[in-house]
């Protein structure tokens, strides 16, 4: 029983990170209709910046702030890059997909050149603190993951619901022509959406780097799990992404704990495929994932 509680806490902690990865994907998708296959690379970027800053002797908070700043710049640049051609024409899905895949290739390679290919771990501010569960001890960082994810989710939600820019973002998400007629500057909103997605990804990367060592090649599995989280919940639904992330994290940890590593690696893609076959719109989504024809 204690073992089950132990795995559940760890699974929820990992799931919180996937939830943030998925939240980044969803934020960009609702804001611009783009699926970002470079989301995992933004997480890796945040994690590695934080690792270099903290290992240079500055504190965890300084590392987090530096990561946020760098990732925000990356988000603005990517947003500007991807918004430029959209001013003139609608972009085709396949072209956007290879565009963000190209960004992913570039970022993975650059990260490998700058930080090396070795997995690096970030020292947690809660290192050495444990939550006792019976005779087992859960590192307190897993609780921090949950709290951090909740804070980020709350901030994003507050931004979307309570600020003027958030209102404009939701207008763009519901209908681009209508938002344009109401005076929303679409291009700027797309850059904002990219930046928020990048920020969410960067914070998620910093948080996860204390429990999973991060290498540039970690971007792909992180991104796939983020997509799994986003799609399980319904691609256009932030709360769904959180639910999806927790489901994937729990399933993965329980499979790894009670079965073996092969099953653990296959859980995220399997859950994703099963959900897509049974409920093409995601668990919380409308049935928009399937074509009606």
């Amino acid at each position: 029983m204690n073992q089950l509680i132990y795995f559940v806490i760890i699974g929820l902690g990992i799931g919180a990170v996937y939830a943030l990865a998925g939240l980044g994907v969803v934020t960009l998708f609702t804001g611009s209709g783009l699926a970002n296959f470079a989301q995992g690379d933004l997480m890796v970027l945040g994690a590695l910046v934080a690792v270099s800053v903290t290992s240079a002797g500055h504190g965890y908070v300084a590392g987090l702030l530096a990561a946020v700043a760098v990732v925000a710049v990356a988000g603005v640049l990517l947003g500007a890059l991807f918004t430029l051609p959209m001013r003139h024409r609608r972009m085709d899905v396949d072209v956007v997909i290879i565009g963000t895949l190209g960004v992913a290739t570039t970022m993975t390679t650059l990260a490998g050149i700058w930080w090396g290919r070795q997995p690096q771990r970030l020292d947690s501010p809660l290192a050495g603190v444990f939550v006792p569960v019976g005779e087992m001890r859960v590192p307190a960082h897993y609780v921090l993951l949950l709290v951090g994810a909740a804070v980020v989710f709350g901030l994003v939600r507050w931004f979307h619901r309570r600020t003027d820019i958030g209102l404009q973002l939701r207008a763009v998400a519901s209908s681009v022509p209508a938002a344009r007629d109401a005076g929303v500057r679409i291009g700027r909103m797309l850059v904002v959406a990219w930046t928020i997605a990048a920020l969410v990804g960067g914070v998620a990367g910093v948080l996860v780097a204390s429990v999973l060592p991060i290498a540039p090649e970690s971007a792909l599995p992180l991104g796939v799990n983020g997509f799994a989280a986003a799609i399980i919940g319904g691609l256009a639904n932030p709360a769904g992404a959180v639910l999806g992330g927790l489901v994937v994290g729990l399933a993965e940890t329980l499979a790894g704990g009670y079965l073996n590593d092969t099953v653990r690696q296959s859980v995220a893609p399997l859950v994703l495929l099963v959900v897509l076959v049974l409920r093409p719109g995601g668990l919380l989504g409308r049935a928009r994932g399937a074509r009606t024809v």
């Binding site: 699926a35 599995p221 799994a228 296959s266 995220a268 399997l270 928009r288 994932g289 399937a290 074509r291």
Partner: peptide, 21 residues
């Protein structure tokens, strides 16, 4: 029967599964 992005991500999952196998 999935729409564009959903199908792309589903096949990404299929490819990941293939590598694991």
């Amino acid at each position: 029967r999935l729409r564009a992005y959903y199908f792309a991500v589903a096949t990404l999952a299929l490819g990941t599964l293939g590598t694991v196998v």
